[in-house]
Design a protein around this nucleic acid. Structure first.
Lengths: 349, 349
DNA sequence: CTGAAAGCGCTTACAG
DNA sequence: CTGAAAGCGCTTACAG
């Protein structure tokens, strides 16, 4: 069935050995490896005559790596609900994989148990199929990641920064800094009393933003009241709460999620306030549902770029010597987008 | 660098030969190839202990199957613009791949030339890495597909039905029948003069729908005027054209694309007509941008199911003996959705 | 019931 | 300057 010419055929036709053909073809004729110009010509002639192209599979087998990059998610890779969330990462990953000559393996054969996939199946690291893998998704399994590190399997985590013994290579966005920029934007407009509305749960994203939020006050030299940090859930943000905020003198809020931002926006408007004239609202990130809602002031997460960067980082990991122990952790900057939900406060200084 | 456990390692640990390990792992223990249960257990134990995963490259090189299914698109797999179009296919593919225990390879290393990827790179079928592949996308290259068939590489085409020597295995939707159902719906409402608005180009989708359209008249026993078929582009559908249609006595139109449907809808309304009271409009397929537009009467394409079916068909192809020459071509039924853009005509019988 | 051997199509020291 | 040999990690007859 396979009638492609092989290296042997070329060697025979050129009247040389396989090694010589290999050297010529791969451009490895140098000081260490001399081949006469005449021989080289004969080789190339034979290559042309037969239409020989080296089998990439064989090449990689002989060379050690298989140029396969894995993509692993603990939940389904193509979930309907989160498509807008994942998509940009995939775009970036595909893009960079193309540049670097990698193919991508989706670990779809990992069966889901309770809606979660596992890396280790019956004790075996299923990612081993690929030279390395990119992990992404909302959930994770610390134990599995820990094990990955132990066995020195090359991988890069996208998005999460949570550390397992501080040795997880990841690419993410600098939400702390981005939050600081949003705050600065509000300061510049004249706001001084700004609330941070965050989720109840103590997750990384909430915390990072909170750090950016409080640091902003310090750096700007403005006083800050810890009561301005409101932990809540979108559903619990009611009229009473907004009334309280405004009574405190708050003129702007930064919201952790689009759910929260949207809720405050709606409640405030129902109460007869106009946004942003009476209250500025900024979103700390991208809205998941791009279509809905007003034109937020926000920072946008460079998801596509994160995907690209992850592939690069992984490629470096794979190609480097094992000893290179420096764990790479990359924070990409976000872009501040000045929308229509922020403006000077009524009582502008 | 490569510390992956190899077949040899497993064999040593289990105290058997490589062949035995290979047989056990690949489930090739049968009448012809007996391995005692005890030995099998030892092999599996060793596999687990070492965390062994067979290298897919080596597997393919040696002639076996590697349980890898390829996904190939002539354009980028994750295009931003068409994400809503591709996504459901991928969901279905992933889903079924999981069921069947296949991993997916995205052929991202194929470089794009003028925005198109090629299967054969310098004469080499890059898909060979996988046991078989699913091709999808808007564009295609007939020559490459032909070659795929010649070398008997297992693949399934999604969406397209266009034939290269009639031997392309594909999974698609039955747009002809679905169009017939839309027509029947209009007939039932009392419409008799129905126009078909299609694109200028002579593509498969236009043609299939046209067949369903004309057959509907025949089967219902209603007269049909070939002037009711209007070839145009969305941009060219102007007031004059709609005026002409209505003057002819047309009370309903079926549109090939959402672009066309949307255009007629807008033009007619600008002219002061109300939809569907004055003119019923049905869309022959799904709107690409789900958010926009009215609640169309349409037929919805089972894209997710198409993806699943494609994986199943491919799996069968891979597992079957080479001789099985029957080319499978599957047409999945669509679902008629009665929206708010069709109703009884003004001059209802 | 199991293993030794050849082979897939290449690359890479190494020896001359 | 060039080639014979071993090896990449598997599978597949084949022999016992």
């Amino acid at each position: 069935m396979n009638q492609r010419p092989r290296l042997t055929d070329v060697a025979k036709l050129a009247g040389v050995s396989k090694s010589t053909v290999s050297s010529v073809i791969n451009g490895r004729v140098d000081e260490a490896n001399r081949v006469s110009p005449e021989t080289q010509r004969r080789v190339w002639d034979a290559v042309q005559q037969l239409g020989f192209v080296a089998d990439p599979l064989a090449r990689r087998l002989a060379g050690g790596s298989n140029h396969l990059l894995g993509i692993f998610t603990f939940e389904p890779i193509f979930p309907l609900r989160f498509r807008d969330f994942f998509y940009p990462f995939l775009v970036g990953i595909e893009n960079e994989a193309e540049q670097s000559g990698f193919n991508l393996v989706l670990f779809t054969s990992a069966p889901q148990i309770n809606g979660r996939r596992t890396i280790y199946q019956e004790g075996v690291n299923s990612l081993r199929l690929a030279d390395g893998a990119i992990l992404l998704g909302l959930h994770d399994d610390k134990a599995e990641i820990k094990r990955l590190i132990q066995e020195k399997y090359p991988f890069v985590y996208i998005g999460h920064r949570e550390v397992t013994e501080g040795r997880v290579p990841f690419v993410t966005y600098d939400s702390t800094r981005a939050t600081g920029e949003v705050m600065q934007h509000l300061f510049d407009l004249g706001h001084r009393k700004i609330a941070y509305l965050r989720l109840l749960e103590d997750n990384e994203p909430s915390w990072d933003r909170q750090v950016g939020y409080t640091q902003a006050f310090q750096q700007a030299g403005y006083t800050f009241d810890s009561n301005w940090i409101v932990r809540s859930q979108p559903a619990l943000l009611n009229i009473a709460l907004v009334t309280d905020l405004l009574a405190t003198g708050i003129t702007a809020v930064v919201a952790e999620t689009d759910g929260i931002a949207m809720r405050v926006y709606n409640v405030a408007r129902e109460m007869g306030y106009s946004i942003p004239a009476d209250l500025s609202i900024a979103l700390l990130g991208d809205p998941l549902e791009a279509a809905e809602g007003p034109e937020w002031t926000l920072f946008s997460i460079p998801r596509e770029q994160i995907g690209q960067e992850a592939v690069r980082l992984l490629a470096r990991q794979i190609n480097s010597s094992q000893d290179e122990d420096a764990v790479q952790q990359i924070f990409l900057p976000c872009q501040l987008v000045k929308g229509k939900t922020t403006s000077r406060p009524r009582s502008s200084p």
